[in-house]
Design a protein around this nucleic acid. Structure first.
Lengths: 140, 140
DNA sequence: CTCGTTGCAAATCGTTTGCATCGTC
DNA sequence: GACGATGCAAACGATTTGCAACGAG
């Protein structure tokens, strides 16, 4: 993450941003900005709320983490930046990564047809599975 | 939408709810709660903000309209309640229905495998295409 | 010295909630 | 009369923004 010469804007992977990155990467779960802040407020030095948001935006932009929106609308952050699907519990909102299925890959074959019918330039797609997580399925 | 006998809670398709439903159904675009409110505030009688939310929740619950979350996190309402995909412009946030593609249907074939690997009870899935709408693609 | 980053607080905006009033059964 | 629906305003919560102080190149 060095400064790119000849580029007008220089952004850096600062101490705080690195700390945020580490928190997101350290856990298999998808953390929200508030959770990242909670994890770092007691750190030394403590991090500011706005800096967490700043850092998260920076990291997303740098391609080091990815955003996922939970069912309740809150943004969570994913350490896995490779294209993959998610599965969400309709009951409790739990969000997990979904292992890549060969079938989902086929949606890509429809890009051309979709572009022709909608006029959009199709660049990607996401698959989001809905269901009941193990805990909620057991209660039902 | 008659009152179901023997049911503890009775909910009704009132005048206001019907008005909200008509607004959502009248337009091909996906309206937000604020846009529905704007369309009905000048109506006779004018509708209250909270009533719009109340009505939208009721209609979603009744299966008469569907929710879609835009990229900016705002909830929009879709008159098409049949399972279908969406395509979103990464530039301007425009959200359109995506005509059903035969390929996307195949994701359903992965439910069993996904359930086995995640422990989830898989009930459904959504495909969301990303790209550039005609207007934004032209500018790029 | 320059410019991006940090930290703090206040503002923003979509959505939810409390409560009194109203209408329908 | 009971209970859900409405209307109004205040509350809420996640995210954004303004601005002064700071720090690296």
């Amino acid at each position: 993450m060095n400064t790119t010469p000849g580029q007008s804007v220089a952004t850096r992977l600062t101490t705080q941003r690195h700390a945020v990155l580490q928190v997101v990467q350290a856990r298999p779960v998808h953390l929200t900005a508030a959770e990242v802040y909670d994890a770092l407020r007691r750190a030394e030095p403590p991090i500011a709320f706005a800096t967490v948001y700043n850092a998260l935006h920076y990291l997303v932009n740098a391609g080091l983490i990815a955003e996922v929106r939970r069912l309740d609308g809150v943004i969570a952050y994913d350490r896995d930046t490779s294209p993959h699907d998610h599965i969400i519990c309709q009951q409790c909102g739990r969000l997990d990564d979904a292992p890549a299925l060969p079938q989902a890959h086929l949606a890509r074959q429809g890009y051309a047809a979709l572009a022709e019918r909608t006029g959009y330039q199709v660049l990607g797609h996401r698959v989001e599975y809905r269901g009941l997580c193990p805990d909620c399925a057991e209660m039902a």
